[in-house]
Amino acid sequence: MTEELMLSGCLRNNATAQEALYNRFSPRMLGVCYRFAKNREDAEDMLQEGFIKVFSQMHQYRNEGALEGWIRRIVVHTCINILKKNKKFSDSIDITNAHSIHIREEMIPSIMQAKQVVECIRSLPLGYKTVLNLYAIEGYSHKEIAFMLDIEESTSRSQYTRAKSMLEEILIRKKIIQKPKKKTNFFGAV
């Protein structure tokens, strides 16, 4: 089924078209939800709520960008809204003692191949991974993130810096990436 047919069918509340659209985009969208969620079950709940919004707001889609991008934005906002309902989230997003968090070896998932980067992201503290997901992967600006999460822009920046640093450490320890070589000049390290 073409995208146009799916869209027109969804606008008519046609179940077949809705299922076709769902089947096409749900695997990738579940991947998005999974990066924000605590576990697969929570991710599926987020996906479910996200797609209900997608179908109920389909008439607002203006064909001005990729359909996947439009769906993705709705799903991401749904994830954030669900996270914000969780009390633990509000506690973790304003972490002031982030420097005291240490990643222990057993906290890092021992997995191989495609999932490894995503699982390492998921092993970050909740506040860190949320900001990192939004900034580095979803492409939101710190200003937008601050608005979405009800935090200061500076908080978003510092969360991201710490998240990135922690993730680098994890990826290096898992040997997924290697330490960057220090730049040197004639007299030694810069």
Partner: peptide, 20 residues
């Protein structure tokens, strides 16, 4: 990060579609 995350996808259980 972006590349790897975008490559990542999972298949949801049938329960999700039934609920939707």
């Amino acid at each position: 990060l972006k590349e790897k995350a975008d490559q990542f996808s999972m298949y949801p259980s049938k329960r999700v579609w039934h609920s939707i």
